[in-house]
């Protein structure tokens, strides 16, 4: 493993499988009466969150505690960032207290790369702007593997706000690396430039993307990142791109539906799909803890890339 986990590109195919295999063992710990192992005793992990987050922050914190690390959470709303401190200064100050790892969530793409350059601590990207969210892609892959055994050769349809989604970017990098056939659909106004270079297929209609799919992955409409009118109304978005039971019929009979959360019910996904028999949305959340334990454990080891060490 490299020093940090900033992007799925930091992981080779073998390392992705190592994370997924380790996560299988980590999942079992969560089923024990005492859900704790002493592995990261004496290691300090700082969760530095510049954006609101319930799922990811809780998931990381539970993962850290199950491995016996000492954890502390810095929610920026209540910190000296409010007094005008820069990210680099905040990081250097935290670094002065010698933590072993920093888990960073930030609204700017590339914020984790900045920290990676100036910090000795291991950096884990917990979502940076519109760039990447690698642990989400890893837990998605883990969930797919649980249901489909292997990822190679599967048709995965990703539908929604493609432009603002860091989950999309990490998932595309990971799924194509493992040999899945990735299709996408969403409003033309929400398609990022250069999508064709990622080795994925785009369809303007949801029906074509979902046709015969093994996995349907829905993306949230990120209204907080939208600085303009990308589509006429949420109602119209739902009518054209919302995942309904009728649209799901085009997929394979054993299809699974995923969503990274938080869901906008009645916008990108109908409630009877989100709560339907093919939904694995809550399994994704459960698997998140195991996958993050695996990442924390593997990153706590040695650095293979000697230039960084």
């Amino acid at each position: 493993m490299k020093k940090d986990l900033l992007s799925i590109n930091d992981l080779s195919r073998d390392e992705i499988y190592r994370v997924l295999d380790t996560a299988v063992a980590m999942r079992e710990i969560g089923e024990r009466p005492i859900k704790k192992v002493p592995t990261l005793r004496g290691k300090t992990v700082v969760n530095l969150f510049y954006e609101p987050s319930t799922r990811t922050r809780t998931s990381f914190e539970i993962a850290e505690k199950r491995l016996s690390a000492d954890t502390l959470n810095i929610a920026v709303q209540a910190s000296s960032v409010q007094k005008g401190e820069t990210l680099a200064d905040t990081a250097m100050n935290i670094e002065a207290m010698a933590p072993d790892m920093i888990v960073l969530r930030h609204q700017s793409s590339g914020a984790c790369h900045l920290l990676s350059r100036i910090c000795r601590s291991r950096i884990i990207n917990a979502g940076d702007g519109m760039h990447e969210h690698p642990t989400q892609a890893l837990l998605d892959a883990f969930t797919i593997r649980q249901h489909k055994q292997q990822i190679e050769g599967l048709k995965v349809a990703i539908v929604g706000d493609l432009l603002h989604s860091r989950v999309l970017r990490s998932n595309v990098l990971l799924l194509t690396k493992l040999g899945a056939e990735v299709w996408m659909s969403g409003p033309q106004t929400l398609v990022p430039r250069g999508l064709d270079q990622l080795g994925v297929r785009f369809s303007p209609t949801v029906d074509e993307a979902v046709e015969g799919a093994d996995v349907v992955m829905m993306l949230r409409i990120q209204q907080e990142r939208m600085q303009g009118a990308y589509f006429p109304s949420l109602r119209e978005y739902y009518n054209v791109f919302g995942m309904t039971v009728e649209r799901m019929r085009r997929a394979k009979p054993d299809v699974i539906v995923m969503h990274p959360g938080p869901m906008n019910r009645g916008v990108e996904i109908a409630s009877d799909v989100a709560d339907g028999p093919y939904s694995v949305i809550l399994e994704q959340v459960a698997n998140g803890v195991a996958v993050r334990m695996a990442v924390l454990y593997l990153l706590a080891g040695g650095v293979e890339d000697e230039a960084v060490a």
Binding site: M1, R18, D21, T22, V24, A25, M26, E28, I29, V37, P38, T39, L40, R41, G42, K43, L67, Y297, L298, A300, G301, G302, E304
Partner: peptide, 25 residues
Amino acid sequence: LDITLYRDDLMRHTVGTQPVVGRTD
């Protein structure tokens, strides 16, 4: 039983890849 996560030498010399964690069942 897999004891990897309980080893007393796990975090002492952090060079190279972490040992593979096996299944506990």
